[in-house]
Every structure is written in C-alpha cells, then in structure tokens.
C-alpha cells in the first residue's frame, strides 16, 4: 500500500511540477512576445510605421503595478518594433502632435518584471520612468537612476552648440591636434 501512495505521490507531483513550469513558460513567452521597450511615438526612419498610426495617448499613466502575473502588460504604447530604442527621432518628425504617457511592455530582469513608461510631449520624449512591478526581494536597486534607453537626437555640429569644453575618450597630445577641444581652444570659446 505504501508503494501505491509513493507512486501516486510521485506521479501527481510530477504532473503538478510540469503544469507549474508550463504556466511559467507560457507567461514568459507572452511577456517576450510583447515588444520589449518603450519608443512609441517615433516615426523613426527605420520603422515603417507612419506617425498617424502612433497610438493615441493613453489615459492610463496608472500602469498596473500589481499585475506582475498577468501577461498582457503591453497596454497602450509600443507600436514601433524597435527593440531597444534605436530608431532615430528626428526633430522635424511629423509625429510632433503626439503627446501623452505610454507604457512599454514588461521585461523580465533579475530584479523582477520591469515596465518602462515614457512621457511624450509634442512628439518628444520628456521623461522615461522604469516602473518596477514587483519587488523581488526588497532588493529593489534604486532603479530610478537606471540608465534607460533613449533616442538619439540629431548630432550637433560643434559650431551650432555654444560650449566651452568637450568631453570625449582620452586622447593623447597628438590626438589633441585634431580634436574638437583643440578647435574651441583656438577659437577661445
């Protein structure tokens, strides 16, 4: 009789474990299927999506901070397919009219699921916030200072910026000759 209990226990346990694993795997793949991070409003040059298809501003800046389990986190934003904010946001973009708060898809990090929320004002990203959905361990890193992906603005020419110095990778005395620093030093800016 003991062997019956043992066999039953083992089989049932295996079934339960498999089920648990499946549920977890299904959730993870659902999370991954949703596009990973922010950049919503860009009619970036690489993404074919036109600005007119950009999502309307969601009224929900109240992204579900308690919904780590459910898999449909990709609420409103994230129309562009860019994976990590690589598409350029051109200043003259026709998406200038887009404003609002957009929530990115949930991404799994070692600190638990994290969702990125961006605030767009007239087509420009004015703020990026990382919302931590669960607190894995009270071990929340101060995620508020996390370096989040950000779109690159159009590179400035040195002339167009009023600057007094340049920060760049270390250069040698020879490197200085051809550096921007050298130019602005000579200009006496």
């Amino acid at each position: 009789m003991r062997s019956r209990a043992l066999a039953g226990g083992v089989v049932a346990s295996a079934a339960v474990l498999t089920l648990g694993w499946q549920i977890g795997a299904a959730q993870v793949s659902a999370l991954n299927a949703a596009s990973p991070v922010t950049n919503s409003a860009g009619s970036g040059s690489t993404s074919s999506g036109s600005a007119t298809t950009a999502p309307s501003p969601s009224a929900s800046s109240s992204s579900g901070s308690s919904s780590s389990g459910s898999s449909s986190e990709s609420s409103s934003g994230s129309s562009s397919s860019g994976s990590s904010g690589s598409s350029g946001l051109s200043g003259s973009s026709s998406s200038a009219s887009v404003s609002g708060t957009f929530d990115g898809a949930t991404t799994q990090t070692q600190f638990g699921p994290v969702q990125v929320e961006i605030v767009v004002s007239s087509g420009k990203i004015t703020d990026v916030k990382a919302l931590q959905l669960t607190n894995d361990g009270g071990r929340s890193v101060q995620i508020s200072n996390q370096a989040a992906p950000i779109l690159r603005s159009e590179a400035l020419t040195a002339q167009s910026a009023s600057i007094q110095s340049v920060s760049g990778a270390t250069y040698t005395s020879q490197g200085y000759m051809t550096s921007l620093q050298s130019a602005i030093d000579q200009a006496g800016l």
Partner: peptide, 30 residues
Amino acid sequence: TVGGDVLGRGSTDGSAWRVGVVDPDARDRL
C-alpha cells in the same frame, strides 16, 4: 579640461559651463 575629462567651478558670463559630449561615431560632432 584634460584629455577629455572636465572639472569646473563657477560659471562663465553668468551661465553654467557647457561641455559637449563627443559622438564616438563622428569625432567632429557632438
């Protein structure tokens, strides 16, 4: 400014010191 590192104090003509960050892909741009 020393080889790409910058340390400053105060201001210039009443406004803060402004430092360009070099674009690693195009050294003449910011």
